[in-house]
Design a protein around this nucleic acid. Sequence first.
DNA 1: GTGAAAGCGCTAACAA
DNA 2: TTGTTAGCGCTTTCAC
Lengths: 342, 342
Amino acid sequence: MQPQSRRITIVDVARHAQVSTTAVSKVLRNAYGTSPTMRAKVQASIAELGYRPHAGARAMRGQTYTVGVLVPDLRNPFFPDILDGVDDQLRDTDYQVLLGPSHCNGERAEARVIDAMIDRGMDGVVLIAPVVPRPHLERIARMVPTVVVGRHGRSTAYDTVADDDTAGAALIVDHLAGLGHRHIAHIEHHETNPIRLAEMPNAIRAEGYRAAMQAHGLDPDIVSTSYTRDGGYLGAQQLLARSRLPTAIFAGADVVAMGVLEALTEAGLSVPGDISVAGYDNTAFAALGPISLTSVDQAGRHIGGTAARLLLDRIADRERPTAQVKLSPTLVVRHSTAAPPA
Amino acid sequence: MQPQSRRITIVDVARHAQVSTTAVSKVLRNAYGTSPTMRAKVQASIAELGYRPHAGARAMRGQTYTVGVLVPDLRNPFFPDILDGVDDQLRDTDYQVLLGPSHCNGERAEARVIDAMIDRGMDGVVLIAPVVPRPHLERIARMVPTVVVGRHGRSTAYDTVADDDTAGAALIVDHLAGLGHRHIAHIEHHETNPIRLAEMPNAIRAEGYRAAMQAHGLDPDIVSTSYTRDGGYLGAQQLLARSRLPTAIFAGADVVAMGVLEALTEAGLSVPGDISVAGYDNTAFAALGPISLTSVDQAGRHIGGTAARLLLDRIADRERPTAQVKLSPTLVVRHSTAAPPA
DNA sequence: GTGAAAGCGCTAACAA
DNA sequence: TTGTTAGCGCTTTCAC
């Protein structure tokens, strides 16, 4: 194994181009006060030497050109959609996206990942559906430009991008009720924390479901598990253990619907013949032929793009007032929902 | 928006604990030469002040306690399995995992992500099925401890963890041939680069399929697309456009099988009634009830755990000879494969 | 066992 | 427009 050669530094480039390190630094950052001649010289040297700035060193004085994205769950197919949107906006910039997976491991794990991102000098962070307490979010946002995605509730410290989950839940309930369903069950991601009950998308969806059911004069029927495939499977099993089965199940996320379908198939029930199933997020999974799941589209890619744009914006101007973007979902009807059996 | 308070530094801790910064640094790194008394004092101060080391500053002299994982595709459900394994090993260490998504965007994008990780002072990197040229991998491994996952071919610069893809492909072919299939098609991830043909798992799987078919006296029938849902969908469409349909399709990855099932359902064909379908990776998707896909299990979590362990090992001792771990796949038979129609 | 001091690679004042 | 210089927060000799 040959000795690893010393990394090229800004000093090497400066010497090679016969200019000062300041000049190189300026060229790197497109800063003011560099002649085209010097610019060209420096860029040539950078290319020839294969120089790349050391982010750690940059972190000590300026930016790292790194954006961190907290991803709660890599198995939920909705998140890649959001990340595509982030990538759309950042691909042609000097910024690099790094992902911090929290593996659905709760507040502690999530806080640790966010701290790690801050410690590593991220210029900004996008937090997807974070579960940490609100004051914690505010504290984070005071340290680093922050955009919170999916979580409701405005803040003067961070920008937010969220979909109207109340409306989304109503879309599903209206659709199912319109088909003639009276007993529509909902599987939600369990939540007891009062603040999260008011802010997390899962809680808002459940509340929206409850309100929409009542508007139709129907009784809500909620099973609490989690927004995972297992959560859907277990939730459906609970429903199937009842003496009287629902005629429709509204899963709070497509990934939950995956588990529901699994449980129903195992139980020998047909969809939508015996029970209708609807999801949320309109992920690629929902469009999948053999599944063809009715779902609520909340345009993940658009959400991610908006979040990234807001973040760059805030990195450029930390003082601007915070923005709250609220998007409207649409219903995508497929083959997993139909009129209840006669 | 209140002024963001200055970050606590090692100097603050040293002052608070009434010791030198050197002492604090030593405690942080569990280094030699600290009395239990000092240790306790320093740890108390760290806790009280809420101090967290600045990774950028650390990067300049020592480690950043960060491990980067290159993930080619966040929509492929196999990768979260690997990441779980990595997380298993790193959760209780001081190391933090950050993910670099390359979004299947080819060599350039991948090289950019890897460079970004190195620039950010990662202590080590795990590269999952990287497509960059081999010399590039060697160069990377010379700069930073590296473990390459999934890609075959030994190196003296990096460790490797790979599954026996030749054997895996044979498992599927043997199974299908055993059921009586004579016309078994394979959908592969297109590859022309000669080095990647010899090293990438997709190429080895295709070659293994070819060899196994010939061993059974059957004619190989390969369609080249990509290891994505779309790749599976398009591949199946190509097969369905033929005058003579295969009786079984071996998709090179579960995510490919997803697309295949979609195309078959759209075409009104039943699985396994009309056509058998098999996947690869045994992801959660394969186990899904309504799909119940026969697949090859390559124990992603175990792969990830092994990779992480090798990486920590190499970070501790850069001079040790490189290791090549090769794991053996197993077949998981489910309901998507059966005897061909009479 | 403990601490003083140098320096990692870069950026931002400031001078020229 | 260009260059000189002083740190950023940490780790690492090397004294004591």
